[in-house]
Simulated scan of single mutants.
Amino acid sequence: MSQIHPSGPGALRLFFPQWQGAAGPQTHQLLPGVNAHDSQLSYHLGPALLGLMSPDHDGPTAYVPVSTDTADEALTTVNGIYAREAVLRQLTEALRILEDAAPDSVVTFGGECSVSVAPFSYLANRYGDDLAVLWIDAHPDTGVPGQSYTGFRSMALATLAGEGDAGIISELPALVPPLKILQVGLRHWDDEGIAVKERLGIQSVGITDTAEDSRKVLDWVEASGATRLAVHIDLDVLDSRDFSNSTGRQSDGMRVSDLVALVGDLSAAAEIVGLSLTEHLPLELMRLSRMLHDLPV
């Protein structure tokens, strides 16, 4: 039986549809017929759909207010971070919501990957060394300001580990030591963040499609000494044969059955107190939305 508690007084379901952490032409050109800003705003729609499709939740629910302003001045790159002002403002608001709600566990339906920074930092402050982080993602997310990609999503995990923008890091109630972080499913080894990952000593396990790989993850959890886990799932880790509404769209990813089995195994080994689902990009629905805006409905 899973030890994550998606309902009840100790659990918070957090909707955090942040999109500003995704920057660059690869974000803007995802779907012909959908303009650049609509492609970005698809991150805003994704979390709502996740909530609609999920089991009923009888515990508390909270929504982080996220700006939909796509004006150039609202998206200015500062200190090497695209839309830094919006990212920082929304991060601090998410932390305020979490501090006020004081949940024992948090399920986050998010936009891009950086939405995990606030709930995981909150949980690290609540549980200290008893918390470990599993970052299930095709990308390392250990970039830092000054690299070619300026989206904060690529810096999310490095920020949690205390590497990156000092002003953002100073807002976090706690950091996660690199030795308490495991990356799972990483396959973009040409990413600029790999050098930071290796310098920090963050370990990783490949695509968990074998019992041996799953065993490596469980052995790492046991060796970490943590009895509580925060699990980040970027949907781009999935194989495109199972899911294509993300940025991955490759047929060498993790199968859905393997992901579900791994999370089940993890929940038997430790209590999952944090779970984030990110990078849901319902781009076809954004195309439909554009049509609806052009019809007299």
Rank of each mutant, 00 (worst) to 15 (best):
S154E: 13
G206D: 15
M254W: 05
E271Y: 00
P55W: 00
D190K: 12
R199P: 02
L41G: 04
I207L: 11
S105M: 04
N79M: 05
A101L: 01
L277T: 06
D56E: 13
A71T: 14
T68Y: 00
N245S: 15
T210K: 07
I233S: 10
G167E: 15
Q147D: 12
L229R: 05
V231M: 06
M291S: 12
F152R: 03
H293K: 10
V205Q: 12
G111D: 08
E279Q: 07
E279A: 04
T70W: 04
M291T: 10
H28C: 12
P177C: 11
H232P: 09
I233D: 12
D258S: 15
I272A: 01
L235G: 11
H5I: 04
L157D: 06
H57T: 13
D129R: 12
D129V: 04
Q40C: 14
S224I: 06
K197R: 15
Q90Y: 02
A195R: 07
T92Y: 00
R13E: 13
A161V: 02
P296F: 01
Q3T: 15
S2E: 09
V34T: 01
M155G: 07
L186G: 10
A223E: 14
R287M: 03
A261Q: 06
K197L: 14
A101T: 07
L238N: 09
T27A: 11
D129E: 15
L31C: 10
E93W: 00
L49K: 02
S116K: 03
D190H: 11
L98W: 02
Q40S: 10
G193I: 07
I136C: 11
H139W: 04
S204V: 01
I202P: 08
S148H: 13
M291I: 12
S114G: 05
H28Y: 07
H293V: 02
L277R: 00
S170K: 15
I4C: 11
L259Q: 09
L275P: 07
L131I: 07
Q183K: 01
D130F: 02
A22D: 10
T142W: 03
V106K: 06
R228A: 05
S170P: 07
L52Y: 04
D69W: 03
G193L: 09
P103R: 08
G111I: 00
I181D: 06
A11E: 09
W189Q: 04
L123R: 05
P178G: 03
P140S: 14
T76I: 11
D130H: 06
D165H: 02
T227K: 12
R215N: 12
W220P: 13
P32T: 05
L45M: 13
G146Y: 06
L292W: 10
V260W: 00
